[in-house]
Design a protein around this nucleic acid. Structure first.
Length: 229
DNA sequence: CGCAGCAATCGAGTTCTCAA
DNA sequence: TTGAGAACTCGATTGCTGCG
């Protein structure tokens, strides 16, 4: 938009530095700068009237410069506030801040923030993996629950004359718990399984072998006689 | 649509501050 | 005293907006 010249940026920067240095040396830096710029722009003025116009231009320029400086200050403040907020948000920064009296450099705040974000990402990944395992366990337990429900249903169908209300639920539960504990002693849980299918095949093999009607009856009698005592 | 004005942002140089 | 980091300053650039 402002039409850059053919000169390299490096040369331009060097010239800017010289210009700024000379304006700093003079008492009225603004006028000096304006004079130098008048030499190579279309704004070169010669008459008295034009001089007064030039003064309004100077004050306008000065006003804009001040506004720009203020805007720049605001921008820096915003950046500074951002760093301070970041320092309070990141625990490792906050810890260091409270332990030592000196303030952390911006580079340190950035580095510690990066480290903290990476740590959070790793934690998230770990928790997602744990969640997957727990979901699988839930599915397995649901299958087991439905299996037991089916067993109970089948039992009720084959023994229609039994009056279940004669015994309280509490007693039934304690008998069931004791029966399960007694049966599970024979269950070998030391093997490694990689999926639920493998586990269920092991469980059902065990059910076939150890939880047949005869075994169950023996266990039940033992438990009931124990309870009676 | 092109232009001017404006604000926001950036990059670079300079100056200031402070701990080692 | 010195070096690093922060703050300040300035010019350049960019994107948006209103106007003719």
């Amino acid at each position: 938009m402002y039409g850059r010249t053919e000169r390299s940026e490096k040369t331009e920067r060097a010239e800017r530095t010289v210009r700024r240095a000379s304006s700093n040396l003079s008492v009225n830096g603004v006028l000096e700068v304006n004079n130098s710029s008048a030499q190579n722009t279309d704004c070169s003025l010669t008459t008295d009237d034009e001089d007064s116009d030039n003064k309004t231009t100077i004050s306008y320029k000065e006003r804009r410069r001040e506004a720009h400086t203020f805007a720049e200050q605001k921008r820096r403040d915003a950046i500074k506030r951002g760093y301070e907020e970041l320092q309070h948000l990141v625990p490792t920064c906050a810890q260091q801040d409270s332990l030592s009296s000196y303030k952390l450099s911006k580079a340190t705040v950035l580095q510690k923030s990066i480290d903290y974000i990476q740590f959070l990402q790793q934690q998230k990944k770990k928790q997602e993996e744990e969640l997957q395992v727990l979901r699988k366990e839930v599915v397995a337990l649901q299958i087991m629950k439905s299996n037991y429900e089916q067993m109970v249903k089948l039992h009720q169908q084959t023994q229609p004359g039994l009056n279940c209300n004669q015994v309280s639920d509490e007693v039934k539960l304690s008998v069931f718990q004791a029966l399960c504990d007694s049966l599970f002693i024979s269950f070998d849980s030391s093997f490694d399984v990689t999926n639920f299918q493998e586990l269920s095949s092991r469980v059902f093999a065990w059910l076939e072998e150890h939880c047949n009607s005869r075994n169950m009856k023996d266990h039940a009698i033992a438990i009931l006689s124990q309870l009676k005592r």
